[in-house]
Nucleic acid binder design. Structure first.
Lengths: 151, 151
DNA sequence: GTACGTGCAAAATGTTTGCATCATT
DNA sequence: AATGATGCAAACATTTTGCACGTAC
């Protein structure tokens, strides 16, 4: 499916900027922040502005083309930036405590864990608490041996 | 255990402010933001400043007395504030998509799900990816029937 | 008495918005 | 032509920090 097609199907206009941002986000297995994405895409997209990256990512999230991943901390103390993920189906994340980097758990492992979540449990949550679960987010927080962040 | 004792054991000095903040955080099942906590505690703690609430919460997180919970969004678009949780053992959270509120999943349900995470799976993660898991964070994102946020 | 915590206001992020202009439909 | 996207700069919200003072040990 062409990027243009993806946008149209989701009711978004096609622009150079959106295409570049979408391609970059879909291509990486890391989960870049808006700023990282800006720096990745900017050289190939003259005149791109950071605000557009934010707006575009927000638009993607609204139509379900991307997901925002919150950050507890960016390595040291403090709040980090949001990260974005073009993979929309449920999957697990690994978050590095030191750097704040987030990468995917390999599909096979993700699936094995997700398969073990009993659906009665979700049903019970809905029944007991009146809460409709739309999405399950699972994250393993820890660190890479030696502190590097690439898998 | 007296609050003073808890602090001492964790190498923190005891102050009126810290005690008040800790008590408030430990007493609630909701997971307040720094600002919410400030407004809860402030009336009973003359001259408390928001900066102290932030500093204190950060100190608590560092010694393991509290946890920071990141927020993807605060209901509508945008970044919300971090939330804090005095319950340190692994448990699950419910996050309301509309309001950003976070509450705990009842222990019984939490435990049932956590028990189903095979420990070989964690071992495999460590072996295959060289990632040491310190903490598992699980969150159900969705909404309460009717959009209210109290359980 | 010393080291650490506090309060204030100012700085540092990270993110959103108003508005004029430009591109897509 | 009309609607919506972009870019810039300014506004915003959240969190952190520098410094003078106060307090716990």
């Amino acid at each position: 499916m062409t990027a243009r097609g993806v946008f149209t199907r989701h009711g978004l206009r096609h622009t150079r900027q959106r295409q570049a941002i979408y391609e970059a986000l879909a291509a990486t297995k890391e989960h870049p922040t808006a700023d990282e994405l800006f720096r990745m895409v900017s050289p190939r997209t003259p005149g791109l502005s950071l605000a557009t990256v934010y707006n575009t990512l927000e638009a993607f999230c609204e139509v379900g083309l991307a997901m925002r991943i919150a950050s507890t901390s960016n390595g040291k103390r403090g709040t980090g930036s949001a990260r974005y993920d073009a993979t929309v189906d449920n999957h697990l994340h690994l978050r590095c405590q030191q750097t704040g980097a987030v990468i995917d758990v390999p599909d096979e492992l993700s699936q094995r864990l997700l398969d073990r979540i009993p659906s009665e449990l979700l049903a019970e949550l809905e029944a007991k608490l009146g809460f409709k679960v739309e999405q399950v987010q699972i994250e393993f927080v820890g660190c890479f041996d030696g502190g590097h962040t690439k898998a």
